[in-house]
Simulated assay, not measured.
Amino acid sequence: MTLWQTPACLIMMVLLDSINDVWTLAAPGSVTMTSVDRTHTLTWIPPETPCNTTILYSVQFQGEFELMVLNGSWVDSSDCQRVPRTHCDLTFDLGSDSDYNIRVRAQCGSEASAWSKLSPTFNRRHTVLMVPNMKVEAMGTGLQVSFYELPVAAAAKVTVWKKDDKQQLPVFQESVYSVPVQLQVPGLQEGAKYCVMAQVVLIQRVLSSTEAQCVTILAKDAQWKTPTTVTGTVIIMSGLLFVVFWSIVHCQPHHCRAYFTKEPLPQSLHIEDVQIRMRPEETELCDRVHLVPSNKD
Results as ranks from 00 to 15, higher is better:
14 V>Q: 06
144 Q>P: 00
203 I>D: 06
142 G>W: 02
130 M>I: 01
242 F>A: 14
50 P>R: 10
68 M>W: 13
78 S>Y: 05
215 V>R: 11
108 C>K: 01
159 T>W: 01
178 S>M: 07
213 Q>I: 15
157 K>F: 15
133 N>T: 13
273 D>K: 06
133 N>Q: 06
34 T>G: 13
280 P>E: 14
238 S>R: 03
128 V>H: 14
282 E>F: 01
113 S>T: 04
225 K>S: 04
156 A>I: 06
249 V>A: 15
37 D>M: 05
27 A>C: 06
203 I>R: 13
230 V>T: 11
103 R>V: 10
16 L>P: 01
285 L>K: 12
196 V>N: 00
145 V>G: 03
58 S>R: 02
93 D>Y: 04
293 P>K: 13
91 T>E: 05
107 Q>D: 06
150 L>Q: 10
59 V>L: 09
189 Q>K: 09
20 N>I: 09
121 T>V: 02
258 A>M: 14
186 P>K: 05
73 S>D: 11
21 D>F: 11
124 R>Q: 09
126 H>G: 14
232 G>L: 14
87 H>G: 07
143 L>W: 03
5 Q>F: 15
87 H>V: 01
228 T>S: 13
230 V>Q: 15
273 D>H: 12
20 N>Q: 11
3 L>N: 10
32 T>W: 03
84 P>I: 08
196 V>C: 02
82 R>N: 15
106 A>K: 08
